[in-house]
């Protein structure tokens, strides 16, 4: 079984978000980047399935050279090799085209990624890749089991879940509680240094969308405190002042 796990490089979840003076780009200065937390579910589950029934796990990132530390981290967690498409990930469609091209060339059976990236929050790439390849997508998946070429997944829908069975090849976008994401151990970190990381140039058409400007949400007015003894007063304020109940 050939697993392809797509990872994106995102600001650490504690990052205070700021933008460049023209508001066109995220301000990377001093920011720590991590593997997108949703992608960690995809990565760990692929490694678990490979350990259980054999195969290989390739990680794929569309990004410039500064994403390599996190690609190495994915190798340290247990992926076998890596591919970096050397390009700024302009939009979801641009990224999806790169993933689809590599998935097709490499004959991958299972293409996994996180539900969405925590920076762009697109929740789009999985469906685009599935459609470009003409194969099913299961999104978002909370559980993934495999038996031979058949996968059983739990797909979250609003208010419940669907149990879905698909055969390879397919795409799934992953979320909790699929597995407990692994962290690298010392041996993993040592071996990751010598695992292959191939860099390729992008293909396909360009992007279909463009960010005109970023903005921060308006700041809160400040909290109105109600003494605990008088807790019932809060409910009156919610009705008469905030008008939400």
């Amino acid at each position: 079984m050939k697993f392809l796990v797509c990872i994106s490089n995102v600001p650490d979840t504690t990052t205070k978000i700021t933008f460049t003076p023209d508001n066109k780009e995220f301000n990377k200065a001093g920011v720590q980047f991590v593997i997108n937390p949703w992608d960690e579910y995809a990565l760990t589950r692929a490694i678990e399935l490979k350990e259980a029934q054999g195969g290989t796990v390739t990680v794929l990132n569309v990004g410039e050279a500064d994403t390599e530390p996190n690609i190495r981290k994915a190798l340290a967690i247990g992926a076998d090799d890596a591919i970096r498409v050397n390009a700024f990930p302009k939009d979801a469609f641009f990224v999806a085209q790169q993933i689809a091209a590599i998935a097709k060339d490499g004959g991958y059976d299972v293409i996994l990624m996180g539900k969405e990236s925590i920076d762009y929050n697109g929740f789009q790439v999985h469906g685009m890749v599935g459609e470009l390849l003409g194969i099913p997508t299961v999104a978002p998946a909370m559980k993934l089991d495999m038996s031979g070429n058949t996968a059983t997944l739990e797909r979250e829908i609003e208010g419940g879940k669907e149990i879905v069975e698909v055969s390879t090849p397919f795409v799934a976008s992953c979320q909790q509680p699929m597995c407990e994401p692994r962290i690298p151990n010392m041996r993993g970190i040592m071996t990751a240094r010598t695992k292959p990381l191939k860099v390729v140039e992008p293909t396909g058409e360009g992007a279909r969308t463009e960010v005109a400007a970023y903005a921060l949400p308006p700041a809160k007015q400040g909290v109105k405190l109600i003494p605990a003894e008088n807790a019932g007063e809060l409910i009156k304020l919610l009705r008469n002042e905030a008008k939400v109940i």
Partner: peptide, 11 residues
């Protein structure tokens, strides 16, 4: 965008 920490105007 940015998990509720920002907005983006997208063309």
């Amino acid at each position: 965008a940015f998990s509720g920490k920002a907005f983006a105007d997208v063309k």
